[in-house]
Simulated assay, not measured.
Amino acid sequence: MNTSEIDAYVYAELARLRDSIDNIDAAVVHMLAERFKCTQQVGHLKARHQLPAADPTREANQIARLRQLAENAKLDPAFAEKLLNFIIAEVIRHHETIAAGEDED
């Protein structure tokens, strides 16, 4: 293979990999949107029954569960925990907004 053939191969491979990354990113966004639809329903249920926005026991269990899933998937568990903590914080914010009567639907 000469240099121009190698360059063409490398650029084609980069394009293929980037297409896969773009598809995965789109799937992640759609999965997060679906997750937030469910958590919005949880927020409404909690608000109707005067339950607190945060559930520390559930959150701790979810973090432990996600860390184990990450480990099994060869993903850094600390990264997975940071991501879930970010998501949980946003969910709690949504639940507080719903409970305050400032529905975000």
Rank of each mutant, 00 (worst) to 15 (best):
L32S: 09
M31V: 15
E34H: 14
Q50S: 12
A99R: 05
A100N: 08
Q40I: 13
A80R: 00
A12F: 12
L69A: 06
L84H: 07
L17S: 12
S4K: 11
F86N: 06
E34L: 10
I21D: 12
L45Q: 09
M31Y: 13
I24Q: 13
N23D: 15
I63N: 06
A54F: 03
V28W: 09
F79H: 06
A100R: 07
I21S: 15
T57V: 14
E13C: 13
L83K: 10
V10G: 07
A47H: 02
I24A: 14
E59H: 06
A78M: 08
D25G: 02
E102A: 07
A89G: 07
M31K: 11
Q41I: 10
H30F: 14
V42E: 11
L66C: 07
A33S: 09
E71S: 06
I92V: 01
L32W: 07
A8C: 00
E59A: 08
L66Q: 06
I24W: 11
E34R: 13
L66I: 09
A15T: 08
L83A: 11
T39L: 07
I63T: 05
T39K: 04
P52E: 04
E104S: 00
L51V: 02
S20A: 03
I6C: 03
A26G: 10
G43P: 00
D22P: 05
D103A: 14
T57L: 15
A54V: 06
